[in-house]
Amino acid sequence: MKTVGIIGGAGFIGSYITKKFLKKGFNVKVSVTDIKKSEKYKHLFNLENSDNLNISSLRVENLEVLKDFISDCELVIHGGTPFQLDVKDPQTELFNPTIKGTENFLEAISETPSIEKVVFIASVAAWNTNFPLPSHGKNPTDTFNENDKKYINTESHPYAQAKFMANQTVEKFTKDHPTLHFEITSVSPVGVMGKSLSNREDSTSTGLQFLFKNNIAPNPFVQMLYDTNAEFAIVDVIDVAEAIFKAATISGLHGKNYLLSSETYPISDLNLMLNHQTPKNKASVVYENTMARNDLGIQFRPVQETLNSYSEQL
């Protein structure tokens, strides 16, 4: 029985990853930032095979604790970046934990001989920090795939910039270390939506679905999405977890970064689907998913199914 360490394994995406590895018979170690806040991870003990689950406290900025966490792991999933839109201090809240945490993580895995495979949960922002708006030089309906040039805009949201820079750090590390004893694979999901496994109310992903369902704009960013009726690419959280499991357990994927996306709809149609109404527009595929379908064998769920799943929990 192999051991997988999942940094951020109690979050919205992380919970589904934890569920998948437990179901497949792995020993699963999950890190949380504050072990005292049991309400953020207690739902994991309701999962199948939770006897094989261990929760421990970890901040990726703490190198020694990080090394200890992964010391007996064969597989490691790094999904510990906080996804947040309302940011008061970008340096402290986003850039430090994202970029410094990535640098620490790369150092730690290099010194851990048991590791066979590492998966980074990046973001579509690793390719285009303007998301959900189109990349530089593209129209909203132009397609985007892994062969397109990565684009960073210094006026983009700090979260997007942090994810872009963290991914650049991983790419440079991979290039500078051609004889690693493990493989590194990254996945870059677009807007991740679906039903939460917990009752937490602090998930940005579930929060966005609530806002879109009710046409609420708590900040200029969300208001801009409504004003422009932005084309929004979505992927189901279940499919993201499946892709991460495949990326972690299939060999020969070293250095690849997979875009994970299903369909794209304008915001007005997301509102309709979240309210169990029929969208007015046909789905398009702006962020292409051919590489993920071919290499990982993922069949992406339709967006309408994903958004209905969220609505059913209300």
Rank of each mutant, 00 (worst) to 15 (best):
E93Y: 12
E93P: 03
L94H: 03
L94F: 09
F95M: 08
F95I: 04
N96H: 05
P97L: 02
P97K: 04
I99C: 06
I99T: 07
I99M: 09
G101P: 03
G101E: 00
E103A: 05
A108M: 05
S110A: 15
E111P: 12
P113E: 15
S114K: 09
I115K: 00
E116M: 08
V118M: 04
F120V: 10
F120K: 03
W127P: 00
N128D: 14
P132F: 03
L133N: 08
H136D: 11
N139I: 08
N147D: 15
D148Q: 14
D148H: 14
Y151R: 11
A162G: 02
M165F: 15
M165L: 14
A166N: 07
Q168T: 13
V170P: 00
T174R: 12
E183K: 03
E183H: 06
S188T: 04
S188D: 08
G191C: 08
G191L: 04
V192Q: 00
G194I: 00
S196M: 02
G207S: 11
L208Q: 01
F210Q: 03
F212Y: 13
F212E: 01
N215A: 13
N219F: 08
P220W: 08
V222M: 11
M224T: 11
M224R: 14
T228D: 15
E231V: 10
